[in-house]
Amino acid sequence: MDAVQLDNVSKTYAIGESQLRALDGVSLTVAQGEFTAIVGPSGSGKTTMLQLMGCLDRPDGGRVQVEGRDVTDLGPDARADLRRDRIGFVFQFFALVPVLDAFENVELPLLLAGIPEAERRSRVDELLEAVGLSDRAHHRPDQLSGGEQQRVAVARALAPRPVLVLADEPTANLDTANGRRIMEIMQGLNQRTGTAFVFATHDPRVVAFATRVVEMRDGKVVGERAGQGASPTGSPT
């Protein structure tokens, strides 16, 4: 079963009196376990596409399916439940809850999903270890570096064991080393868990990690190719 499928999806934003067509009849399928990069210049529609895949927004036209289920017309609560249980997000701006420490940030989606405490603790510990932050579990975001915050965000995205993780420019605010580390972690988790990752990026070093590259321009998918799927050591797999 595919993780997510867009079928002739369109989205238009009103900016003042003018209309901006952010997505224009896009069709795309992401299978489970894929590690897909969406590339393209600013304004090409990458972020809008991720938002529609993640049920953060609704399309003006076309259909969106998550795990084969049509989610196009779901109401706000049903979309919230779907995000909570099946979709993880990693944002450019780290997006941690500032009043919660690393452990609590990762635990939050599990609390929302009503996962019992013992299982929550086990999952959070496991994920913090996977991103190399076991010793920083009780630090708040303002006590963590940018790279560490983004690693917490990756752990949080994986906590509910989603079918799909959407990452919008996940390395844009990080230096090269930390950007690389994030991509290595995401790639490792993709391979270990089978969770599909879709990430939007400008950075060719990030694109190099993808097994599939989708190119966008002016709200349309204009090309697609197999990626290098760079290994954690930097060489293509």
Partner: peptide, 25 residues
Amino acid sequence: MSSAEAPEIRGGLAFGPLWRIARRD
């Protein structure tokens, strides 16, 4: 970890975690 099994839809956030966030806010 596996994403294969779909978790059941559960009741939502209890008072404790909400209060934790509210108090710290």
